[in-house]
Protein backbone atom coordinates (compact mmCIF):
# COMPACT_ATOMS: atom_id res chain seq x y z
CA UNK A 1 0.00 0.00 0.00
CA UNK A 2 1.08 3.54 -0.65
CA UNK A 3 2.48 5.51 2.22
CA UNK A 4 0.04 8.37 1.65
CA UNK A 5 -3.51 7.84 2.84
CA UNK A 6 -4.99 11.14 1.77
CA UNK A 7 -3.52 13.70 -0.57
CA UNK A 8 -5.13 17.08 -1.15
CA UNK A 9 -3.54 19.48 -3.62
CA UNK A 10 -4.81 23.06 -3.83
CA UNK A 11 -8.35 22.01 -3.06
CA UNK A 12 -10.99 24.74 -3.16
CA UNK A 13 -14.70 24.53 -2.64
CA UNK A 14 -17.25 27.30 -2.78
CA UNK A 15 -20.96 27.22 -2.17
CA UNK A 16 -23.47 29.58 -3.67
CA UNK A 17 -25.41 30.99 -0.79
CA UNK A 18 -28.51 32.83 -1.74
CA UNK A 19 -30.20 34.90 0.88
CA UNK A 20 -33.52 34.08 -0.68
CA UNK A 21 -33.07 30.37 -1.23
CA UNK A 22 -34.85 29.18 -4.35
CA UNK A 23 -36.09 26.06 -2.75
CA UNK A 24 -39.69 26.81 -3.59
CA UNK A 25 -41.66 28.09 -6.50
CA UNK A 26 -42.70 31.04 -4.36
CA UNK A 27 -39.06 31.90 -3.85
CA UNK A 28 -38.41 31.92 -7.57
CA UNK A 29 -41.47 34.01 -8.32
CA UNK A 30 -40.68 36.51 -5.59
CA UNK A 31 -37.10 36.86 -6.73
CA UNK A 32 -38.25 37.89 -10.19
CA UNK A 33 -39.63 41.07 -8.72
CA UNK A 34 -36.53 41.87 -6.77
CA UNK A 35 -34.19 44.49 -8.03
CA UNK A 36 -31.09 42.39 -7.58
CA UNK A 37 -30.58 38.79 -6.64
CA UNK A 38 -28.38 38.54 -3.60
CA UNK A 39 -26.24 35.53 -4.20
CA UNK A 40 -23.08 35.29 -2.21
CA UNK A 41 -20.32 32.87 -2.89
CA UNK A 42 -19.07 31.32 0.30
CA UNK A 43 -15.54 30.01 0.01
CA UNK A 44 -15.68 26.96 2.28
CA UNK A 45 -12.19 25.73 1.39
CA UNK A 46 -9.54 27.94 -0.10
CA UNK A 47 -6.48 26.33 -1.65
CA UNK A 48 -6.00 23.60 0.93
CA UNK A 49 -3.07 21.24 0.49
CA UNK A 50 -2.58 18.38 2.92
CA UNK A 51 -0.76 15.08 2.92
CA UNK A 52 -1.89 12.56 5.49
CA UNK A 53 0.08 9.36 5.89
CA UNK A 54 -1.32 6.00 6.90
CA UNK A 55 -1.46 5.59 10.66
CA UNK A 56 -1.81 9.27 11.48
CA UNK A 57 -4.58 10.54 13.72
CA UNK A 58 -5.34 14.05 12.56
CA UNK A 59 -7.43 16.37 14.69
CA UNK A 60 -9.25 19.03 12.68
CA UNK A 61 -10.04 22.13 14.70
CA UNK A 62 -11.43 25.55 13.95
CA UNK A 63 -14.39 27.75 14.69
CA UNK A 64 -17.80 26.92 13.22
CA UNK A 65 -17.91 27.47 9.47
CA UNK A 66 -14.17 27.14 9.04
CA UNK A 67 -14.50 24.30 6.51
CA UNK A 68 -13.82 21.23 8.67
CA UNK A 69 -16.97 19.37 7.70
CA UNK A 70 -16.55 20.33 4.04
CA UNK A 71 -13.06 18.86 4.14
CA UNK A 72 -14.37 15.59 5.56
CA UNK A 73 -17.19 15.55 2.98
CA UNK A 74 -14.67 15.95 0.16
CA UNK A 75 -12.53 13.11 1.51
CA UNK A 76 -15.67 10.96 1.83
CA UNK A 77 -16.37 11.70 -1.89
CA UNK A 78 -19.75 13.15 -0.99
CA UNK A 79 -18.90 16.61 -2.30
CA UNK A 80 -16.73 17.38 -5.30
CA UNK A 81 -14.24 20.24 -5.05
CA UNK A 82 -14.33 23.11 -7.55
CA UNK A 83 -10.60 23.03 -8.00
CA UNK A 84 -7.63 20.96 -6.95
CA UNK A 85 -6.76 17.32 -6.85
CA UNK A 86 -7.65 14.72 -4.27
CA UNK A 87 -6.36 11.20 -3.85
CA UNK A 88 -7.60 8.74 -1.25
CA UNK A 89 -5.88 5.39 -0.83
CA UNK A 90 -7.91 2.94 1.20
CA UNK A 91 -11.44 2.34 2.26
CA UNK A 92 -13.13 5.29 3.95
CA UNK A 93 -15.75 4.87 6.65
CA UNK A 94 -17.54 7.95 7.90
CA UNK A 95 -18.93 7.62 11.41
CA UNK A 96 -22.50 8.74 11.09
CA UNK A 97 -24.20 11.11 13.41
CA UNK A 98 -26.83 9.91 15.80
CA UNK A 99 -29.59 8.01 14.02
CA UNK A 100 -28.50 8.75 10.45
CA UNK A 101 -29.12 5.70 8.29
CA UNK A 102 -31.37 4.06 10.86
CA UNK A 103 -35.00 3.30 10.20
CA UNK A 104 -37.06 3.50 13.38
CA UNK A 105 -39.54 0.82 12.33
CA UNK A 106 -36.90 -1.78 11.63
CA UNK A 107 -35.17 -3.90 14.23
CA UNK A 108 -31.61 -3.33 15.34
CA UNK A 109 -30.54 -6.36 13.33
CA UNK A 110 -32.19 -5.15 10.11
CA UNK A 111 -30.59 -1.76 10.59
CA UNK A 112 -27.17 -3.33 11.11
CA UNK A 113 -27.45 -4.95 7.68
CA UNK A 114 -28.54 -1.75 6.02
CA UNK A 115 -25.83 0.31 7.69
CA UNK A 116 -23.14 -2.24 6.97
CA UNK A 117 -24.03 -2.48 3.30
CA UNK A 118 -24.20 1.25 2.82
CA UNK A 119 -20.72 1.48 4.34
CA UNK A 120 -19.49 -1.05 1.81
CA UNK A 121 -19.73 -4.47 3.47
CA UNK A 122 -21.35 -7.50 1.87
CA UNK A 123 -24.16 -9.46 3.54
CA UNK A 124 -21.74 -12.30 4.08
CA UNK A 125 -19.24 -10.09 5.88
CA UNK A 126 -21.95 -8.62 8.10
CA UNK A 127 -23.22 -12.07 9.03
CA UNK A 128 -19.69 -13.05 10.06
CA UNK A 129 -19.16 -9.93 12.14
CA UNK A 130 -22.64 -9.81 13.62
CA UNK A 131 -21.86 -11.37 17.02
CA UNK A 132 -18.96 -9.01 17.49
CA UNK A 133 -21.02 -5.98 16.44
CA UNK A 134 -23.83 -6.84 18.84
CA UNK A 135 -21.39 -7.46 21.67
CA UNK A 136 -19.61 -4.16 21.07
CA UNK A 137 -22.94 -2.31 21.07
CA UNK A 138 -24.02 -4.19 24.23
CA UNK A 139 -27.42 -4.81 22.67
CA UNK A 140 -27.68 -8.60 22.90
CA UNK A 141 -31.18 -8.45 24.40
CA UNK A 142 -32.56 -5.72 22.17
CA UNK A 143 -31.23 -6.59 18.73
CA UNK A 144 -34.64 -7.82 17.53
CA UNK A 145 -36.48 -4.79 18.90
CA UNK A 146 -37.44 -1.93 16.56
CA UNK A 147 -34.94 0.90 16.83
CA UNK A 148 -37.82 3.24 17.68
CA UNK A 149 -37.76 1.75 21.17
CA UNK A 150 -34.02 2.39 21.64
CA UNK A 151 -32.58 5.16 23.74
CA UNK A 152 -30.33 7.58 21.89
CA UNK A 153 -27.32 6.01 23.57
CA UNK A 154 -28.29 2.61 22.22
CA UNK A 155 -28.65 3.96 18.67
CA UNK A 156 -25.30 5.67 18.99
CA UNK A 157 -23.60 2.50 20.21
CA UNK A 158 -25.08 0.43 17.41
CA UNK A 159 -24.07 2.95 14.74
CA UNK A 160 -20.56 3.14 16.11
CA UNK A 161 -20.34 -0.64 16.39
CA UNK A 162 -21.23 -1.12 12.73
CA UNK A 163 -18.85 1.57 11.55
CA UNK A 164 -15.85 0.22 13.46
CA UNK A 165 -16.56 -3.27 12.15
CA UNK A 166 -16.40 -2.23 8.50
CA UNK A 167 -12.63 -2.65 8.73
CA UNK A 168 -11.90 0.77 7.25
CA UNK A 169 -8.43 2.05 6.51
CA UNK A 170 -9.52 5.64 6.96
CA UNK A 171 -12.06 6.69 9.59
CA UNK A 172 -13.82 10.04 9.51
CA UNK A 173 -15.33 11.31 12.76
CA UNK A 174 -17.30 14.54 12.71
CA UNK A 175 -18.15 15.44 16.31
CA UNK A 176 -19.67 12.03 16.78
CA UNK A 177 -18.27 11.42 20.21
CA UNK A 178 -19.78 14.52 21.74
CA UNK A 179 -23.16 12.90 22.33
CA UNK A 180 -22.48 9.67 24.21
CA UNK A 181 -22.26 9.27 27.96
CA UNK A 182 -19.02 8.93 29.91
CA UNK A 183 -18.82 5.14 29.62
CA UNK A 184 -19.46 5.20 25.89
CA UNK A 185 -16.86 7.91 25.31
CA UNK A 186 -14.30 5.81 27.16
CA UNK A 187 -15.17 2.83 25.05
CA UNK A 188 -14.79 4.86 21.86
CA UNK A 189 -11.46 6.25 22.98
CA UNK A 190 -10.24 2.72 23.66
CA UNK A 191 -11.39 1.71 20.18
CA UNK A 192 -9.61 4.69 18.66
CA UNK A 193 -6.42 3.71 20.47
CA UNK A 194 -6.84 0.17 19.15
CA UNK A 195 -7.17 1.57 15.62
CA UNK A 196 -4.05 3.64 16.14
CA UNK A 197 -2.10 0.53 17.14
CA UNK A 198 -3.36 -1.21 14.03
CA UNK A 199 -2.00 1.61 11.91
CA UNK A 200 -5.31 2.97 10.66
CA UNK A 201 -5.80 6.58 9.68
CA UNK A 202 -8.25 8.69 11.65
CA UNK A 203 -9.59 12.16 10.91
CA UNK A 204 -11.32 13.68 13.86
CA UNK A 205 -13.30 16.91 13.87
CA UNK A 206 -13.69 18.10 17.44
CA UNK A 207 -14.30 21.14 19.56
CA UNK A 208 -13.07 19.29 22.63
CA UNK A 209 -9.44 20.42 22.84
CA UNK A 210 -8.62 17.93 25.59
CA UNK A 211 -9.79 15.12 23.37
CA UNK A 212 -7.68 16.44 20.49
CA UNK A 213 -4.62 16.69 22.75
CA UNK A 214 -5.29 13.21 24.04
CA UNK A 215 -5.75 11.23 20.82
CA UNK A 216 -4.43 13.20 17.86
CA UNK A 217 -0.89 12.72 16.61
CA UNK A 218 -1.19 15.79 14.43
CA UNK A 219 -3.55 18.72 14.39
CA UNK A 220 -4.71 20.93 11.56
CA UNK A 221 -6.31 24.26 12.33
CA UNK A 222 -8.64 25.61 9.67
CA UNK A 223 -9.89 29.15 9.55
CA UNK A 224 -12.08 30.58 6.77
CA UNK A 225 -11.22 27.67 4.55
CA UNK A 226 -7.47 27.97 4.91
CA UNK A 227 -4.95 25.96 6.86
CA UNK A 228 -3.71 28.27 9.63
CA UNK A 229 -1.46 25.79 11.37
CA UNK A 230 -0.50 22.17 10.95
CA UNK A 231 1.68 20.27 13.37
CA UNK A 232 1.96 18.82 16.85
CA UNK A 233 -1.40 18.93 18.71
CA UNK A 234 -0.03 20.77 21.75
CA UNK A 235 1.37 23.66 19.70
CA UNK A 236 -1.52 24.00 17.29
CA UNK A 237 -4.14 23.82 20.04
CA UNK A 238 -2.29 26.49 22.02
CA UNK A 239 -2.15 28.77 18.97
CA UNK A 240 -5.82 28.16 18.27
CA UNK A 241 -6.89 28.88 21.85
CA UNK A 242 -4.84 32.08 21.89
CA UNK A 243 -6.55 33.10 18.66
CA UNK A 244 -10.07 32.44 19.92
CA UNK A 245 -9.32 34.32 23.17
CA UNK A 246 -8.12 37.27 21.12
CA UNK A 247 -11.32 37.09 19.05
CA UNK A 248 -13.46 37.05 22.17
CA UNK A 249 -11.61 40.01 23.66
CA UNK A 250 -12.14 42.02 20.50
CA UNK A 251 -15.82 41.12 20.42
CA UNK A 252 -16.21 42.58 23.91
Amino acid sequence: MKDTAILLEHVSKSYRLSHQPYSSLKGILLSMFRYRRRIEVHQALNDVSLTIRHGETVGLIGVNGSGKSTLLAIIARVIRPNAGRIEVNGRVAPLLQLGVGFHPDLTGLENVYFNGIILGLTRQQIAERLPSIVRFAELEEFIDTPVRAYSSGMVLRLGFAVAVHTDPEIILMDEVLAVGDEAFQHKCLRKIQEFQHEGRTILLVSHDMNQVRQVATRTVWLHQGRVMADGAPEEVVTQYLAFTEEMERRAI
Partner: peptide, 9 residues
Protein backbone atom coordinates in the same frame (compact mmCIF):
# COMPACT_ATOMS: atom_id res chain seq x y z
CA UNK B 1 -30.51 13.54 2.60
CA UNK B 2 -28.64 13.10 5.90
CA UNK B 3 -27.14 9.88 4.59
CA UNK B 4 -26.43 11.46 1.21
CA UNK B 5 -24.47 14.19 2.98
CA UNK B 6 -22.24 11.71 4.79
CA UNK B 7 -21.74 8.52 2.79
CA UNK B 8 -20.62 7.91 -0.75
CA UNK B 9 -22.84 5.66 -2.84
Amino acid sequence: IQLVKKVYF
